[in-house]
């Protein structure tokens, strides 16, 4: 299954989003950001395609902006 990462501007947003997704039953995990995606030093949320719709819906309700959702090259 295709994997995605959700990139945020600060690691605390990643932690908050991961918690919300887990509460919504979406399998996901915090992981280091693949270096080719960002020059930043924080973390991102990694999830499978199956969770994509829920993630996109959640993002619309957040009080802060996210960077982007990126499909990982397998």
């Amino acid at each position: 299954m295709k994997e995605f990462v959700l990139l945020v501007y600060t690691s605390s947003h990643a932690i908050g989003i991961e918690k919300k997704l887990k509460n919504l039953g979406v399998p996901c995990k915090l992981s280091s950001i693949p270096r080719n995606l960002s020059s930043d030093c924080g973390i991102c949320v990694r999830f499978d395609e199956i969770g994509l719709k829920t993630v996109e819906d959640l993002v619309k309700t957040l009080p802060f902006d996210i960077q982007e959702i990126v499909a990982l090259e397998s």
Partner: peptide
Amino acid sequence: NAGRGGHRFAVAAGEILY
């Protein structure tokens, strides 16, 4: 150190702050 790096201790600290 919360927010600095992606290793487990940094993430654990970040989770506590959250």
